[in-house]
Design a protein around this nucleic acid. Structure first.
Ligand SMILES: [Mn+2]
Ligand SMILES: [Mn+2]
Ligand SMILES: [Mn+2]
Ligand SMILES: [Mn+2]
Lengths: 264, 264
DNA sequence: ATTTATTTTTAGACTAGTCTAAATAACGTT
DNA sequence: AACGTTATTTAGACTAGTCTAAAAATAAAT
């Protein structure tokens, strides 16, 4: 059996590879809050287990099998996050930590149940894509708000797990799915000026925050499909206290799954 | 932090004490499927941690603190079982194993959420009582079907975790809450003859099975309060395939909690 | 009251995961 | 090309949990 420790390591490697950062001993160590020496040990162990290719002093890359397992956990993590948010009434800033534990423990039956109940979703509450059962990820391209030129956009994903940060973003109404206009960058030092569609007043956002926001151009001139039709509201378990329901969680039927996963 | 291993040990001790069996090294070892020597080690560790009182060669009893922790896990276990059954559409024979893992991992928030959502229940799908947040258990007395004389009864709880056994009991329609009549015992070797209320044909049940069924006398002459008024049906997540919804899951508001827990 | 059988404890070893501190390799400068 | 800095690996140790096999204690039976 594969331990939850190993699962967390694999997920960390996948994440680094996704960001095109090389998976060095120290970056993994930092991500998992363990000592560098612990990572070195684990690298050798995972190499021996055939889950990654490792050349000492040179870094590591996941094998097909390692990648498969990593995607399995990533899928669980994000499905569980969505479940906690939609069904259990968790705030989007509360889901990550709980999912971090549940992802290793829940049965396949559980995962399939929530997957079906949620309608085979492919976006978690933060806008990140949920791999399907075969490991396929429906990645649509987005750009970092930092790199965006003034224009019309929609928040696509928020890549930061810190509860405080997420709570802040929610207060600023910049949860995934929100359409807005980027007005100016840098006119005020370190700030972006933007306006949420429908509002009268513009608002400001720090560079540091913009770093974690990814947006999609929606410029009412470009490809504007059925994008504003996605309020799929599910009745939730939440006892009291309305929680912000982050929209933008598009849904795809299980039947129309894409064929494969590229093995690198 | 308290490990899930320790939590499982504590739960095993509690269970043995509940059955008035002495918690001997070997019985605990058998229950947890570990070697006797492992239990001895753990006994010393738990003793040192103040969770149980242990005299070598003489067995062990939980301290107040150990009992508190054990009840906490028992509560989680049973609440989660009920949640899986009522909300996630699990069959009552499927809930135990999943709960056995989740009980250690889920946050207090999660537990409180499902507790509130289920209406502060005090019976799990097998008819076992769910301790409240203070550790109090609403134990109403029942008798083992083996020891019962012919008469009118209602199934109260089924104390056996084996999926096959539970599936069998469900096929025989003897889930908690079912009213029936015990007709004869032992007329046919090793079998009980009984009839479920409303049915025309009687049915037989083996001694071995009856051992695990606990019943309450309902004999329409005795204390028959509002007992037949408990269809509280909650809409469940179950995708397809109707699952037997074991009734008899009475509900109590959080407000009217009983005062205390006796410390032995 | 011995002897025999059962239960429990000890002794010693193993695995997974982690750490700190020291050694070594790789890298970026002069 | 030699030097100092940074990253990585090694060495050695620790904890939690487990095991098997042998020793010791308790309980049962002659
Ligand atoms: Mn997350
Ligand atoms: Mn995790
Ligand atoms: Mn159970
Ligand atoms: Mn358990």
């Amino acid at each position: 059996m594969i331990s939850s420790t190993v699962e967390n390591y694999l997920k960390a490697f996948l994440r680094l590879e996704d960001m095109n950062k090389k998976a060095s001993t120290s970056t993994v160590a930092r991500q998992l809050s363990v000592a560098d020496a612990s990572v070195t040990d684990m690298l050798r162990k995972l190499q021996k287990g055939g889950l990654l290719e490792y050349k000492p002093y040179y870094g590591a890359t996941l094998t097909a099998e390692g990648r498969r397992l990593a995607l399995r956990i990533l899928r669980r993590h994000r499905l569980i996050e969505l479940f906690l948010h939609k069904v259990m009434g968790y705030g989007w800033e509360e889901v990550h930590d709980e999912a971090e534990n549940l992802e290793h423990v829940v049965s396949d039956l559980f995962v399939e149940r929530i997957d079906a109940y949620l309608g085979y979703p492919d976006k978690d509450p933060h806008g990140e894509s949920i791999p399907d059962a075969t490991g396929f990820r429906n990645e649509d391209l987005d750009i970092c708000l930092l790199a965006a030129d003034p224009g019309e956009y929609e928040v696509h994903k928020v890549v930061n797990d810190q509860p405080e940060f997420l709570a802040y973003i929610e207060r600023e109404s910049l949860t995934p799915g929100t359409p807005f206009q980027l007005l100016e960058k840098g006119s005020v030092h370190g700030l972006l000026k933007l306006k949420i569609s429908g509002r009268s007043e513009p608002q400001f956002l720090g560079i540091e925050a913009a770093k974690y926001l990814y947006v999609k151009a929606t410029g009412d001139r470009l490809d504007n499909q059925a994008r504003r039709s996605k309020q799929r509201r599910k009745k939730s378990l939440q006892s009291g206290g309305e929680r912000g329901e982050s929209p933008g969680t598009s849904v795809r039927r299980a039947s129309q799954r894409e064929p494969a996963r590229r093995s690198k």
